[in-house]
Design a protein around this nucleic acid. Structure first.
Lengths: 192, 192, 192, 192
DNA sequence: AATGAATGAGGATTCATTCAT
DNA sequence: GATGAATGAATCCTCATTCAT
């Protein structure tokens, strides 16, 4: 997930992601990260300027990774519906394959711990922009009702996030069939 | 919001809710709560057993309050669609009127800081159970497609939460019209 | 020396003064102060806002104390020469009786660790101002040569400080006779 | 100022002197010295055995340099008074020309950070010994009162140091005239 | 019941020093 | 000789909790 980083940074980021999911931010101490990653605190501070920096780098790294994964193979497709389906399937698959990344983004994307600059940078490399374009295209083709594309995307992100969260909390089943039906009902929900 | 509690507890809970929204959990220290609520730390520990206890009591208190508010006036209505609409409108109104409570629940409902027992207790007094019953009724009446009611509810909670979040973060507009259209698309999304 | 402070503050200030003389500022850690003063670090931070604050309070406390001691009994005297002699004798006695305070002021009165506000506050309660007045009086009475009083005071502070320092470092003897002769030569040095 | 050292040592010593005057000892980290001097930490440790060693070398280097400068041209002069005046003028000029060296010596000559061996070595190469000889000569010629020469030198070092300090702190003016008058009053202060 | 001073373990971070390259 | 990444003990400081008053 953190292929663009060097070995030490990768170890730190992966360890931090794991601990933060188990224990929350406040219980994720630098000394714990050091111990579990096998990197000394001194070295961590050689590669990251602060604990905040680690969290922000984590955020940006995951968002970038997700951005590529969600849009993978989407642009070669023809119809808006195919793109819509492929992108959302990608999103569900990704989230279920990398639940730690999913939960981290969910917990911290609205946190003051994440700098505005990280959010801005993330927006550029993330998938929300491209997804919004697909919806805009659907509106233009008069497939979708005349709602703000950003609003529709936000609605469906919510749908996806909450069903995935319910599943990861062992509260809901989520078969491949379920996923297809959820995506289908998202499509239907804004169909003209 | 915390009418069932005594004066001191109310002051502590309201102060904590305010600070935690401004500053995050880790920056919400007991001494700050004491100072801002005008209650000494000693007294806080007389009414709450720990900081975790305050957070959990906050969680339960808000969920209970929401449970009543969302289901207000719903059961006197006749048709499933009327109940569906009323409940969701209640939810949007409530969330926009009490954004602090909304954001707190969003941030902490999946947090390890909230005990399982609080979540269980919350489930009983919250609105998810009653809402699920409405959906089950709709399935039974063959209005809705044959999906697990809990899954559908979860989908629509996500839709509502994410549009409200987007609005509270100044990222989306959310007029009364928008809210009605969102609720309508939720209805359409699972319509047979 | 720190009678205006409470018991805990007094213990902390006295301990800090002792350690800082033995070991220097950088080796005077909060944990060492805590251990040696018998006050926990938490309590220290209850009474002082930071390590800097301790050092500054120490500075102000000593300067105030010295200000009173040096000028004790001076203003009831008649002639300028009597005032001059009494004040300087007071200064030598004080410095030899409280060598820790003397050395601290010497080491840190020019340090960036001491806030300008502390220095300003110290100037008001210290003895340099009153001493300068005595010199100005001597100039006015045409006893002293026509040099800036502040410059003459600074010269004689240097004389006193360096002879005391030399003595405290076991480098010079400093009998009562020596002190009288030093004060006499200061008097002579600027005599008209 | 550090001509006897090699290029790397010179760069390290000059950089350290500059930083230590700007920031104090505790803020003068090895990594900062390395960065600002353009010498890697590894290399610094090749030429100096520790941080203490740098500080001590600095101390010795400056004292040696001062020793030569203060006594420059003194011994070719005939009368004691000429030697006295020349030496003290040299000292004032030197201090005002190299304020960093002056302030460093002032701050650290009494510090535990400087080894006794450095102080001893400094004494041999410094100017205090030769200056004391001039005073002893004056006593012998019955020009000066019968005080210990070392005591008198110490008195006048104090006078010089404090007036220079006052000037460097922007607290006192110090014209050439002032300097001459100060030296004259030192002479007068111990004149028989 | 109410207070807030006292505690001290644990937090993030720094930095002199080492050592593999 | 030269480099600078790596180390981890030690730094200042915070904060949940206790308890004497």
């Amino acid at each position: 997930m953190f292929e663009r980083y060097n070995k030490v940074q990768k170890a730190v980021l992966e360890t931090t992601l794991r601990i933060i999911n188990e224990k929350e931010l406040q219980a994720t101490s630098m000394s714990l990260i050091a111990k579990e990653s096998g990197v000394s605190t001194g070295s961590i501070y050689h590669y990251f300027s602060s604990k905040e920096d680690i969290i922000n780098e984590l955020f940006k790294g995951i968002v970038m990774f997700n951005g590529e994964a969600v849009m993978k193979g989407v642009h070669e497709l023809d119809s808006v519906q195919e793109k819509f389906q492929r992108a959302w399937i990608n999103y569900f698959r990704l989230s279920l394959e990398y639940p730690l990344g999913f939960q981290f983004i969910e917990q911290y994307s609205f946190s003051p711990y994440i700098y505005q600059s990280s959010k801005d940078e993330a927006y550029k490399g993330g998938w929300c922009g491209p997804m919004t374009k697909i919806y805009a295209e659907a509106v233009q083709q008069q497939l979708f009702i005349d709602l703000e594309p950003r609003l529709m995307v936000q609605m469906h992100i919510g749908t996806a996030v909450y069903t995935i969260k319910g599943h990861l909390q062992n509260y809901l089943e989520l078969t491949d069939d379920d996923i297809h039906r959820i995506i289908q009902s998202c499509w239907n929900s804004v169909l003209k």
